[in-house]
């Protein structure tokens, strides 16, 4: 993926509910919220567990493994984020923890993409203060 210099990077909004998620990326960790009370794993981070209304949450580190649930390719520059050169692929990854995540996939072309493709996380240091979890195709041992 090629970023266009000079176009502002779009960054996450970090608040009290989600800061652990975003700050973990700097240490190259992907974490998800887990309800301490009922054990439900949640993404996106929430202030309260929707299953039991507990506000006691912990953060667990993800295995980083998942499969492609859906994807789309940006081919037309006027209907795309100008900070990334088209074509680029956005994927919806289903993680082994059972939660989903939006991200990019690298080193794969649009023609090679398919739903169900196994992927694994890596961390892309986009700028000094922004590291994003992204995905690569993963070889599955038979």
């Amino acid at each position: 993926m090629e970023y266009v210099k000079g176009v502002p990077l779009l960054r996450p909004y970090i608040d009290y509910d989600n800061q652990e998620f975003w700050l973990a990326h700097r240490e190259e960790k992907l974490v998800f919220q887990k309800c301490t009370y009922c054990g439900k794993i949640i993404h996106r981070p929430k202030p309260m567990c929707p299953a039991c209304l507990s506000t006691d949450m912990e953060w667990i580190e993800s295995t980083g493994l998942g499969t492609i649930y859906s994807w789309t390719t940006f081919v037309y520059d006027r209907a795309a984020y100008p900070g990334i050169r088209v074509p680029y692929i956005v994927v919806l990854v289903e993680m082994s923890e059972g939660v989903r995540l939006v991200s990019n996939i690298e080193d794969v072309t649009s023609e090679e993409m398919y739903i169900g493709m196994p992927v694994e996380v890596f961390f892309d240091k986009v700028s000094d203060d922004l590291t994003l979890p992204k995905f690569r195709k993963r070889k599955v041992k038979k």
Binding site: L9, L10, R11, P12, Y13, I14, D15, N18, W22, R44, Y69, S70, W71, T72, F74, A79, A80, Y81, G83, I84, Y88, V90, L92, L101, V102, S103, N104, I115, V126, L130, L132, K134
Partner: peptide, 26 residues
């Protein structure tokens, strides 16, 4: 109020047609 954008925008998933495209593909 748009904090959900934080989870999609940095990846370039930035315009309404692309949001629907993810549903459309699936």
């Amino acid at each position: 109020p748009n904090d959900h954008y934080g989870y999609i925008m940095p990846y370039g998933l930035a315009v309404p047609p692309s949001w629907v495209a993810l549903f459309g593909t699936r």
